[in-house]
Design a protein around this nucleic acid. Structure first.
Lengths: 191, 191
DNA sequence: TAAATCGGAGTGAATGTTCATTCCGGTATG
DNA sequence: CATACCGGAATGAACATTCACTCCGATTTA
């Protein structure tokens, strides 16, 4: 492979623009301009706008997973592992607000919904450390015996909502708030 | 008085289509077809697609508020009032899934974000029974002393997330789940 | 009362705009 | 000079919106 500068520029520009304006608010021409390339050049690196959107999502998800699993200790108690994960997730998104906005957009789109379906209904082949925790927790009677989707909602609903308000400037997610919120999430799913 | 049949048909068609496909997935021509009117007719009732979207939202919000405040007892204890509200909200959305999907779309759009800003940052002139409960609860030291936006997120994040999964068919929101979820919401915000 | 006229709701083809995508001439690279 | 790579004008499809026209019930006129 050769010069990936342009590829990266396109990705960066897309991320910034889409996170701010949404998928439909950003024409390819705008991405091209911001990336400093010709409109046609984008199509040398991506098949379509759709695949640009999807690939960008995958790229972000990989980055996030990598970050989450750094320092993850499989042998700690369930609660510790859970709190560790959501804490890191919040850290990540506070440090990368554009990533959050992008993922949120994606999640609230047809792409994201089918992805979510695969996750919470447990499509075979998908491996998800969080879902493993849920399964283990239900099994060991530590967590409520709810469908995985419900545990996910109860645990992540408030976090996502808080993150958004933080990034939009409606609240300031300080250490105290994070502490309380993560504890509340745990209390919501524990038996 | 004039005949409002067409107006109502347009509103009904818009609600169904937009709830299912999203704002951008629904051309005006599609709405016209489903409503059984000419494309131009829509513009006799609404100035633009934008105002159709906004007016539909307002209409729904009024309906929902009306329903919520039916039977609301201002003299009950704070906790009871809070639980009453979120319970009724869930009932409403379970009974009207299209309304939920529409409101969710709206909420996750630029329109909704500025509306949310007005709400949680307390734009003067807006009167919101829920925010009153938060203010009173903080004042009486019943609720955590967090910004209103944070209380809102912690209380409603899980509900919205659960509602969505219910409507998409990922979980079944039965009485038990509702009970547990609403209690968890309260526990999340109480001191 | 019957005919003529009016007003305004309703229509949908036409318009103009905004894109995603393509294409081809130019430019760097080897 | 040949090859790979780029740019951005050109293209065509999808849409929101407009407008010249039709239709029909109400109102006026004869």
């Amino acid at each position: 492979m050769k010069n990936t500068d342009k590829h990266d520029e396109i990705v960066r520009a897309s991320l910034e623009l889409i996170a701010e304006k949404g998928f439909h608010g950003v024409p390819m021409s705008m991405i091209a301009k911001k990336a400093g390339v010709g409109a046609g050049t984008i199509y040398r690196y991506f098949n379509s706008k759709d695949s640009l959107i999807t690939e960008l999502h995958q790229e972000l998800e990989e980055k996030i997973n990598l970050y989450l699993y750094q320092g993850y200790k499989i042998d700690r108690p369930l609660k510790d592992r859970f709190l560790y994960l959501i804490r890191k997730l919040m850290q990540y998104f506070i440090a990368h607000p554009l990533h959050f906005r992008y993922m949120e957009q994606y999640f609230n789109s047809p792409y994201g919904i089918s992805l979510h379906r695969d996750r919470v209904l447990g499509k075979p082949g998908r491996h998800d450390i969080l879902m493993d925790i849920f399964v283990e927790g239900i099994d060991k009677k530590i967590l409520k015996d709810f469908p995985k989707a419900a545990l996910f909602s109860i645990a992540f609903g408030p976090l996502i909502s808080l993150m958004r308000d933080h990034i939009l400037g409606f609240v300031n997610l300080d250490e105290n708030l994070i502490q309380q919120a993560t504890e509340a999430c745990w209390d919501g799913i524990k038996r």
